[in-house]
Design a protein around this nucleic acid. Sequence first.
DNA 1: CGGAAACAATAATGTAGATTAAGAAAAACG
DNA 2: CGTTTTTCTTAATCTACATTATTGTTTCCG
Lengths: 191, 191
Amino acid sequence: MSTGLLFQHIEKHIPLDAEEQAFVSSLLQVKKLKRKQVLYQEGDIHKYQVFVTAGCLRSYSIDHNGFEHILQFAPPGWWIGDMRSFTTQTPGVLHIDAVDKSEILLIAKADVERLYRQLPPFERFFRILAENSIATYQHRMIDSLSLSAMERYDNFCRTYPSLIQCLPQKQVAAYIGVTPEFLSKMLNKPA
Amino acid sequence: MSTGLLFQHIEKHIPLDAEEQAFVSSLLQVKKLKRKQVLYQEGDIHKYQVFVTAGCLRSYSIDHNGFEHILQFAPPGWWIGDMRSFTTQTPGVLHIDAVDKSEILLIAKADVERLYRQLPPFERFFRILAENSIATYQHRMIDSLSLSAMERYDNFCRTYPSLIQCLPQKQVAAYIGVTPEFLSKMLNKPA
DNA sequence: CGGAAACAATAATGTAGATTAAGAAAAACG
DNA sequence: CGTTTTTCTTAATCTACATTATTGTTTCCG
């Protein structure tokens, strides 16, 4: 059952009986993605919230020179999306695709709102999720303002040890904010 | 009444009758801050959520060379704080002080939780707030990864026109992530 | 109002990290 | 499998931005 991970996750914060689980399940859509398959592009409206159950997704923007800048990686158990696009249902700026063969759960904006009406504790669940996400962004932003490339790399390795294993160096470079050439040089010319 | 701005703000998202307002008010503490007065330092536990009713606050970190890096400015109507420290009640990394003579409302962690129990719609209010904040951080992070110093400056001017007026250049530099010397040069040597 | 402190401008020099280019290695996939 | 695509490495050159230092200008507060 691909929804197992999600319910595990929910039950850390709010209780949910079998009937309620069934209701939540009825709002979910399971989707499989091939490696590199695109879910959203710049300009798309993020109609669904995305929860990753297998594989790994990433969100990124593409600058005016065509370079990718990665905002987030989402291994199993993580949510990913362009928050402004989702809450306002306007065209987003983030691209989202699968780094690996993946499986995700989708829930539409309208169904999230239905969920809030039928099961108010979900307001709490998503509030807690959002607050944790803010805490993460605050630290990432501070790191980006105050640390060197090497320190940001070390930080990434410490924070996401499992990702370092499976991601190409190039993607790590696009996350910490350096070119792949510079990251390679940095890792091979220590001292 | 210094709580007016807060209730105005709350009522954009959830309804609140007089009795409920009174209850919320009973949990609030008004505090005045002098220009440059410090509210939190690195290592402090952020026991209160902070809502600004007058003046302007800022949150920042100090790196190992003693340089300040500004995460956020909070003019009236904004919340400010170290989210991880607040939610987990552990020592924070952010410093918070008043840029100008200010007035703030404080609500303790325990009282926020009391609020959620007594008035569940507040879960919704803070969820919406948190989601908006995520949207802002996502865009700030992407900008920091993909834009030049000049583009980040232009962006800041467009996004916070009122702040540009009243902030010393030095603080804007610490927000966009350059030295004050470089910002000065950039603004005076165009072409 | 006057002295101290914070802020801004300018300039010389230094450096982290970008750019460009090219070849080698690895991985993807038909 | 082999070949096409992606990724990694190395190295030379370049530039956006940092550092250090000095001087002038505001702002602040007693």
